[in-house]
Amino acid sequence: MVFLDLALNALASGIALGCIYALVALGLAITFGLLHIPNVAHPALVIAGAYAVVLANMRGIDPILAALVLTLPFYAVGLAFYEFYARAFERRGRGNTLQSLTLFFGVSLIVEIALVVAFGTDLRSVSVPYVGRSFELGLIVLPYRFLVPALLAPAVILGLWLYMTRTHSGLAMRAVAHDERALSISGHDPVAIKRHAFGLATALAVLAGAALVIVGPVDPFAGRVHLGRVFAVVVLAGLGSIPGTLAAAIIIGVAEAFVTAFLSPSWAPGVAFAILLGTLALRPNGIFGTAR
């Protein structure tokens, strides 16, 4: 009975955890998965988003509502950021991996230090009415501060998936990943589409930030923990697969939760990466990816 209890709870919290990971990884699924830009600054942007949400929450605004409003300025930041990146690299022809990784690493350091200077290194959190209470269903107990952000993920992913498959600009975004040349022949500006996609990814960062800060307090360097994991999710999903991102994140979340429950929490961080190493060695296109 204890075993069943433990297993069910591990499953539930693993799925919730996975949903939150998916939210953090979603922006990267667009920038890295579709645009092939290794944006290692994404987790730092997520944390910047979390701090923006904290600021709004200090004025009494609900974190998720605040995040939805904040997507607009973050979208604009993303546009500007892509413009900078494009000017620095793509005009000279494709920048190589080392250079773009280095550029984004530099950006992420600057974001982190900007947060340290502005807010100090203390942990920051938000106050929401449902913190401290739990959702109970039979044997399963799940705190609302996990459940609410976790439910945000499927909603956002569904919205994004509909956008990508049903709308013109969403289709154009997927097309730019396949063949830029053909896209410009058919009368679209690939650079504008990529800029829009990058803006969208940055806007998703603030939603992920809201989810993270509801789950628990954050500090300026909190993004580093997620850096490897989000790449693991995106690679495991197969590049550019939006529903795959959710599935891969849940696989990792559940695996971590089971290791935490049955082995020890200190083994949990290695799980995502052991899965990732295995995937890269055996199936480099990811579980849900098609051949490149």
Binding site: L101, G228, L280
Partner: peptide, 23 residues
């Protein structure tokens, strides 16, 4: 382990190695 992968994938695989060893 990484014979089949290049570029960013190789970079990601090496990050994974760090976390696995650290754990």
């Amino acid at each position: 382990l990484t014979l089949r992968i290049q570029g960013v994938y190789f970079a990601i695989a090496t990050v994974a190695l760090v976390v696995v060893l650290e754990t």
